[in-house]
Design a protein around this nucleic acid. Structure first.
Lengths: 190, 190
DNA sequence: TCCGTACTAGATTGATCGCTCTAGCGAGTA
DNA sequence: TACTCGCTAGAGCGATCAATCTAGTACGGA
């Protein structure tokens, strides 16, 4: 444990950004949730909300990146891995009443044209996920080039399915996107 | 023409929501851009920003829904239609310096858990797009059930590709998503 | 013991938020 | 001419925003 004040501020930011986005989250709300003094936020992050936001994105990204090997290594083969990845995402979204999906998607759309530091943080996270995913496909005997393409296609399908799933309050898009990507991987292997 | 004050307010809202999202857009900014008197906003939309937001979403959705038959009917076959849809989206995103992609995706993620009326408006728009897309696939001889699934998969791929394309400032995700979906449609037809 | 640094603590700032309110304009009707 | 009604016009409301500022506390090294 030994969660420092700084850690709690970052963690609390990451949670709030994930659930309600960047613009809807106030700095007061962040420190209250973190049970941290207000002054500490600007002590640790002189760049203010934007600097904190960029760090929260990178932290979230690193944590979620661990899910990729965790799910795929536990699965008997990559196709099962893909199915379980989407199924797990669907289960989690339902558990949280369609509130908690991708930790950075909302923020990514919000800041892509308004904050270059935060946009770059999002880009780095997506790139790291793509790398991690491509590693799994490459292990399954797919060429590096094709593995990267498949991962990007899967990430697109996943992120888009999150948008639709939350708006429609139905896991149907996640299920269909998962099956579609499983078929695409099957095609690439066979 | 004969664009009424009310029309200009809705149109200006739709543009601003598309470019910078819901929370980042102020009502003052909306009426200024619309060259409309501030009081008119609350005359036409007593429910305030939320009621206006819901209408702007529906209006945007109806306009963009027209793109689906427009692109597919102009293409020689559905697979070419899919390719041109993604290629056209990529061209438009680049033209607007990665600012203008889906008119409602940012808002959808922002409001899904905070405004039920706006979430419902987003859900209706997505449903209308799915219907319109499924019609095209059904015309190409695909079963109604499969046509709907293909459209949802395509919409997921498109929305997710928008998220990645804007964050990475690269059209690679849109290109890959387009090719992946073209292959999926090929599979469904062949 | 003393000093300097790291951090805590929150009051306060000016700007901006969504929204309400009153006042008045202009066209149509009586 | 009087009156209504749809709409214009914007001043101003309380609340909240991100951020700054001053004080104070805790603690390690000299």
């Amino acid at each position: 444990m030994a969660a420092t004040t700084r850690d709690r501020i970052v963690e609390s930011s990451a949670e709030l950004f994930r659930l309600q986005g960047y613009n809807a989250t106030g700095v007061k709300q962040i420190v209250t949730r973190a049970e941290a003094p207000f002054g500490s936020l600007y002590h640790f992050f002189p760049g203010g909300k934007e600097e904190l936001g960029a760090e929260a994105i990178r932290t979230s990204g690193a944590i979620y990146a661990q899910l990729i090997p965790a799910v795929f290594d536990a699965a008997p083969d990559v196709i099962t891995g893909v199915r379980e990845f989407f199924a797990g995402a669907a289960a989690h979204v339902v558990e949280t009443d369609y509130a908690d999906a991708c930790p950075i998607a909302t923020v990514a759309l919000e800041v892509s044209s308004s904050s270059e530091p935060m946009r770059e943080a999002c880009a780095e996270v997506f790139e790291s996920w793509i790398e991690a995913g491509a590693d799994r496909y490459a292990e399954a005997g797919i060429s590096r080039q094709r593995a990267r393409e498949l991962t990007i296609a899967m990430l697109c399908a996943l992120e888009g399915a999150f948008v639709l799933t939350r708006a429609l309050r139905s896991t149907e898009p996640l299920q269909i996107a998962g099956e579609t990507m499983a078929a695409a991987v099957q095609e690439a292997i066979g």
